[in-house]
Amino acid sequence: MTALLSSPTRVPAKPRRLALRAAWTLVGVLFIASFWGLDLEWAKLWELPSDVWHYFGLMFSDPDWSKLPEALFQTWRSVSMAWVGALVGVVLATLLGIPAAEGVGPIWVRLPLRWMFAVIRAVPEVIIAIILLTVTGLTPFTGALALAIGGIGTHAKWTYETIEATPTGTGEAVKAAGGNRMQMVRWGLWPSASPELMSLGLYRFEINVRTSAILGLIGVGGIGDMLTAYTQFREWGVVGMLIIVVIVVTMTIDAISGRIRRRIMEGAKSRDLDRIV
């Protein structure tokens, strides 16, 4: 066609973004190398869809409801672990997170604390539990403790980030009025940061509900314990029932906790409005 001839003459050359192309190539190479490293059996990959379909049928066509009471009991144990873990974790994380915020703690306190949080974040809860149970044994208490310690990593980070994001005005006012560091935190920062922190604490609980089921897999008790057992017995009807219980309970808790969180945040907003008006 004549397209080339009739193009505007001064079309700038499309910049070749070499860095971007190199990045994509690297991703591609890494992907292929990784795929290689998986050592997959291709035959299995082929059978995968029919396999999954087969087991789906076994699990959900006729879930075994006779074990429901035990499942609910174990679910409550998992939820309890999640709650106690969240509560202890949030309290510890708040106490440790506040001094780690800029403008609150001095740098020689902030940096080591932040490093500690990063290290805790890097360790999966399951491993924390494995370490803990050398001392505390295979009990739900171990699970709760593991959740609490694991929660410190993330929640303390959220805490200092939230505090750093809150306007410094009230804190400075308390300082100007002659308050010490503790008073500044209590009367200056805490009131404006606490709704968000409470909301994040509830979010922590939602996450813990999922993690506590995982901790059951290593034997600390709760719904995860039951799931492993019946999966090993290959009693698929019971496994199907357990999965349904997990889904329903988790989604219900998410919904309730989500609603409370929205209420907390809206309450905070209207309180801010009161202050302005």
Binding site: S7, R10, V11, P12
Partner: peptide
């Protein structure tokens, strides 16, 4: 190539080809 062409001309006509 026709679409590309039209786009470039439209940009040219408002002086934004650069």
């Amino acid at each position: 190539s026709g679409d590309r062409e039209i786009v470039l001309r439209a940009l040219d006509s408002v002086g934004m080809l650069e």
